[in-house]
Design a protein around this nucleic acid. Structure first.
Lengths: 155, 155
DNA sequence: TAGTTATTGTGAGTTACTCATAATTACTGG
DNA sequence: CCAGTAATTATGAGTAACTCACAATAACTA
């Protein structure tokens, strides 16, 4: 069969293009990091290291930290910080969606932005507060996931 | 005058009562920590150490961490985590208010909850997400404060 | 194909905490 | 008021998650 349905394939090609469009160099490490995170969203730096060891055997934790920080402020990754967990990364960056974290097991789920545009983007300042010019509003939901709710707290 | 307008006075008395009501012991360290944080909201653990050294000269950083963690899960303090900053603490805990952080200087301001009750407390799960039972929604606004906006980026 | 310089690799260092265990000290009960 | 017994606090060591400086490498470019 010929290429009628351009497969989701060539993901590395897409990332390569994105990097070039930003004037950044295209490296094996960056491509590997980006597709690893695309494949498993909310991955931690450590998860990424594990994933990359498969194809880039000698990669170090420090390099991964540099790469992630770099891709993050290049705008290709979004960094998520949840309580009592190392930072997580995802490639879904163009919608401002939010996250819900299970306070019991730490699992994270995506939540679409309810209002479409950021909710309550015009804050009501507390008395005495110096107002700021707001750029983004991130919502972090905390609760209990199904699995934890159903399983007896085994501790 | 008799006690018509119970003065804001005796703050340590109030905290002592609060501790007792929870069945926790009333100690100099706890009272000092609580009033230090009440006096300067959004204080970091380190800020608290500095403040406490005045009255409790020999106090250590580790003790302060223990005290703060303890008061936090006793429900007398609320812990705030903002990106690229150590955790902060505040005594304002009974309204679910939010925070705005200046991405340039890190200053934090309080934001009243616009909707009264938590905004978007019924999340719209992304497709494929396992819904959870939500308990709280925290909103973190990020922007630029007046001071930073007006001052030339001196770097 | 060589040169320039953005990336990556390496090793050490830091920040923000946590843990185990010993020493105190606040609240009983007598 | 005094002793007893936990709850707190102090102490020292240890850890997780990064960050930094500098040397080595490899992408782009001319």
């Amino acid at each position: 069969m010929t290429e009628t349905t351009l497969p989701p394939a060539a993901p590395s090609r897409r990332w390569a293009d994105a990097l070039r469009a930003l004037g950044r160099r295209v490296t094996r490490q960056r491509l590997a990091a980006l597709s690893a995170i695309e494949a498993s969203p909310h991955a931690t730096a450590d998860d990424v290291v594990q994933a990359l060891r498969a194809e880039l055997s000698g990669i170090t934790v420090q390099s991964v930290y540099v790469i992630l920080a770099d891709l993050t402020d290049a705008g290709l990754l979004r960094r998520i910080e949840t309580p009592h967990s190392p930072a997580r990364y995802e490639t879904r960056i163009n919608d401002n969606h939010h996250h819900a974290v299970c306070t019991s097991c730490g699992r994270i789920e995506d939540v679409d932005c309810a209002v479409g545009h950021a909710p309550c983007l015009t804050p009501h300042w507390s008395s005495g507060a110096q107002p700021m010019t707001i750029q983004v509003a991130e919502v972090l939901y905390q609760g209990i996931c199904e699995a934890c709710r159903n399983s007896p707290p085994t501790n």
